[in-house]
Simulated scan of single mutants.
Amino acid sequence: MNMFKRLLFPSRPDGTAASAILLIVRIVFGLLLMNHGIEKWSNYQELSAVFPDPLGIGSPLSLGLAIFGELACSMAFIIGFLYRLAMIPMIFTMMVAFFVIHGNDPFAAKELAFIYLVVFVLMYIIGPGKFAVDHWIGKAFSQKAGR
């Protein structure tokens, strides 16, 4: 009973249960977005000629940046390495997808980009939790500074 109370009503948002939930969210949403990046990477040759170019930098470079945001940054997001820095391209990619690429589409067509955007902005704000590489690096730096 006490475990359920702590899970449903955590007294500390940085506790183990909250960090475990953050880890699960990082894994789930990171893998989901990574699948989009893998799909783009696998079809790079075909997509590079027709991929949208919302920034005016060319389709191949726009595709490369989308792959970076969806694949490389998702990996860093999952393990919590350079967490907030890695999330900037992810958030930017979802903003472009939602507001520019699907800007005039009905909401149903851009709903997935919106869900990713909301989750990533909230995760950016709350941080990775204590089950993240950044947390362990921060602890190591704190211990060295304390010597």
Rank of each mutant, 00 (worst) to 15 (best):
K139Q: 15
S11I: 10
A72N: 03
L63Q: 03
P10G: 08
W136H: 14
K5Y: 13
A76R: 01
I115T: 14
L122N: 14
E39H: 12
V96H: 04
G129Y: 05
H36C: 06
H135W: 13
F29Q: 05
I27W: 02
V119A: 09
G138V: 00
N35A: 13
C73I: 08
Y116Q: 08
M1Y: 04
N35I: 04
L112K: 07
I78L: 05
I88S: 06
A72Q: 04
S42Y: 01
Q143Y: 10
P89D: 13
D53T: 10
D105E: 14
V100C: 03
M94S: 12
S59N: 04
R26P: 02
L61H: 11
M1F: 11
F120R: 05
H135P: 01
I38P: 04
I101K: 04
A108M: 09
I125E: 01
L122Y: 06
L33N: 08
F29I: 03
F29Y: 10
N35W: 07
M90H: 07
L33C: 04
F51L: 08
F131T: 05
L32D: 02
L71W: 08
G103E: 00
F81W: 14
I79P: 01
L65Q: 07
Y44Q: 09
I125T: 14
I67Y: 10
G58C: 09
A17P: 00
S74I: 06
L23S: 05
S48H: 06
A113I: 04
L8Y: 10
N2P: 03
F81P: 04
I78N: 02
Y83M: 10
L85S: 10
C73Y: 01
F4E: 11
F9W: 12
G15Q: 07
V119R: 03
F141Y: 13
A140Q: 11
V121E: 02
H135F: 14
F99A: 08
I27Q: 01
M87N: 08
V118N: 01
W41K: 05
M3D: 14
L7W: 15
A86V: 07
N35F: 12
A72F: 15
M90I: 13
I38S: 02
S142E: 12
K139T: 09
I21S: 13
M87W: 08
T93S: 12
G56D: 04
P106T: 06
K139A: 13
V119D: 03
F131E: 05
I115H: 13
V121S: 03
P128E: 09
S42V: 02
F107M: 14
S59C: 08
L47N: 00
G138P: 01
L8A: 14
P10W: 08
A72M: 14
S142D: 15
G80T: 06
M3K: 14
F99W: 12
K110T: 04
V100G: 04
G103C: 05
D53P: 02
P13V: 13
E70V: 06
A109E: 15
M3E: 11
E46R: 08
G80Q: 06
Q143W: 14
F107L: 15
F99T: 00
S48W: 01
W41E: 05
K139H: 00
A109P: 00
I101R: 01
E111K: 10
G80E: 07
Y83I: 11
V121D: 02
G30T: 09
